[in-house]
Design a protein around this nucleic acid. Structure first.
Lengths: 126, 126
DNA sequence: AGGTTGTATGCAATTATGTACATATAGCTA
DNA sequence: TAGCTATATGTACATAATTGCATACAACCT
């Protein structure tokens, strides 16, 4: 991959919240909607949307609208080298470091009906 | 590795010039002095020093002074996981993308005497 | 000591990034 | 249609990164 491209991707990814978003997408390997991120990461909705927009802007991530909900996933059309780069990065993480988010997200996913999110996010974001 | 640590390293590394510096250090696997970087990368001396300072600040790189010259290398005491991270990142690069710098650096290294740099950098930095 | 050369740093100007809030938009439902 | 909910975006502000330049510092040499 070109050096400029690598630098660009690293810059996009070099942010705590965006890393957390990517980890959850990688680990659960399924579509996750914005409100599920909000609850799992305990980050205000506008921030989640903003980070997702950045990731989307670099084509790392893709959103699919289903009604009012928008489900995000790692962009399945990502070039193989970029894909491997991302995976490689995340492999360096201690899993304890995001286990709490994993658990929270798991709880949220259990609230889905027919595989779909049916509730919003908790307004009382501490 | 902790997620914040990963984000921090990625942020430090997510810069075209700093990536080029790291590539050269990895590929040549030896001490390289500031003026050699200046000529190889064709970047003003103060910029090279600044980028090296940032890399040094995060302990990714180490400088050893020998007379007026300062030779840099990948920090040999880098924790193994960090070391692997850096190596992993650089492996994604097309080597054509930095082959010119490699050649220029090779030429510069040939001008060393007894393994030591004996000239400065070219003032006429285009 | 004085001059020279390689390297580092401080400062100012610009640009980019992060954050918070308000509000807009899209699609649902009644 | 109106109202609601999920998501997206615009704006404003603070903060950080980048860049260019001048200059300081360190070590050498005469």
């Amino acid at each position: 991959m070109k050096l400029e491209k690598l630098a660009e991707i690293l810059k996009t990814v070099a942010h705590e919240k965006r890393l957390r978003i990517l980890v959850l997408l990688e680990e659960f390997d399924q579509n996750i909607c914005v409100c599920e991120f909000v609850d799992a990461l305990n980050v205000p909705q506008y921030q989640v949307s903003q980070h997702l927009r950045e990731l989307r802007g670099k084509d790392l991530v893709r959103g699919n609208r289903d009604g009012t909900w928008v489900y995000y996933s790692i962009n399945p059309d990502l070039p193989r080298d970029v894909r491997r780069l991302i995976e490689g990065l995340l492999e360096h993480l201690d899993s304890e470091d995001y286990s709490r988010e994993m658990e929270k997200l798991e709880e949220r996913l259990e609230l889905r009906e027919d595989g779909k999110c049916v509730i919003g996010y908790d307004e009382s974001d501490e």
